Simulated scan of single mutants.
Amino acid sequence: MKHHVSRIIFAAAVLLGGIASAQDFVQSGSSATLPQTEGEAIYNAICSGCHMPDGQGAVGAGEYPALAGNENLETADYPIYLIIHGQKAMPPLGDYLDDAQIASVVNYIRHNLGNNFEGDTDAAYVPQSR
């Protein structure tokens, strides 16, 4: 039941991100997958609907923190954990993104959107947070 609810929340987040991104989302059988592999494409498909395309965040039906200039992104551990497990209004995405996709979007948000934090992460680093 928990995974079913998470999938519904994830699908709703994708739909709220825009029609184009919803069309990019593929559901096959009982497992949902996101076909994008590049950090920017993943961000645009599932993150920008709440955190905004420029990463400035939003307040409305919920509060979505800014990723731009967010010092919590200085180390990769924090965003990796939140992407996998979720927090408050953010659904857990660990069942929908593989380790390489998580690393890719984390690198994107840490090096773009007005951020320029040092270092990259890779897929081998992600499992410790699962």
Results as ranks from 00 to 15, higher is better:
residue 35 P to V: 02
residue 3 H to C: 08
residue 74 E to M: 08
residue 93 L to W: 04
residue 118 E to L: 13
residue 1 M to V: 05
residue 68 A to T: 12
residue 124 A to E: 13
residue 48 S to D: 01
residue 80 I to P: 00
residue 102 I to C: 00
residue 20 A to N: 12
residue 111 H to F: 05
residue 16 L to C: 09
residue 38 E to P: 08
residue 74 E to H: 07
residue 39 G to H: 01
residue 91 P to M: 09
residue 2 K to R: 14
residue 73 L to V: 13
residue 16 L to R: 14
residue 113 L to G: 06
residue 56 Q to V: 09
residue 124 A to R: 12
residue 2 K to T: 12
residue 113 L to V: 01
residue 68 A to G: 04
residue 112 N to C: 06
residue 107 N to W: 01
residue 28 S to R: 11
residue 53 P to L: 11
residue 8 I to V: 15
residue 65 P to V: 15
residue 110 R to I: 03
residue 67 L to Q: 13
residue 45 A to R: 06
residue 58 A to P: 04
residue 66 A to D: 10
residue 105 V to F: 08
residue 58 A to W: 12
residue 56 Q to Y: 10
residue 74 E to S: 08
residue 51 H to W: 02
residue 86 G to S: 11
residue 66 A to Q: 08
residue 11 A to T: 15
residue 14 V to E: 00
residue 49 G to M: 15
residue 82 L to G: 09
residue 62 G to L: 11
residue 60 G to L: 03
residue 118 E to G: 10
residue 78 Y to F: 12
residue 66 A to M: 09
residue 40 E to N: 13
residue 107 N to D: 08
residue 26 V to E: 13
residue 65 P to S: 10
residue 80 I to V: 07
residue 56 Q to G: 09
residue 123 A to M: 05
residue 65 P to A: 15
residue 53 P to G: 15
residue 101 Q to M: 08
residue 2 K to P: 10
residue 59 V to M: 15
residue 55 G to H: 04
residue 130 R to H: 12
residue 74 E to Q: 14
residue 88 K to Q: 04
residue 21 S to I: 04
residue 116 N to F: 03
residue 83 I to Y: 00
residue 17 G to A: 13
residue 65 P to Y: 06
residue 47 C to M: 05
residue 2 K to L: 10
residue 55 G to Y: 02
residue 128 Q to Y: 03
residue 113 L to S: 08
residue 128 Q to C: 05
residue 59 V to G: 07
residue 115 N to M: 06
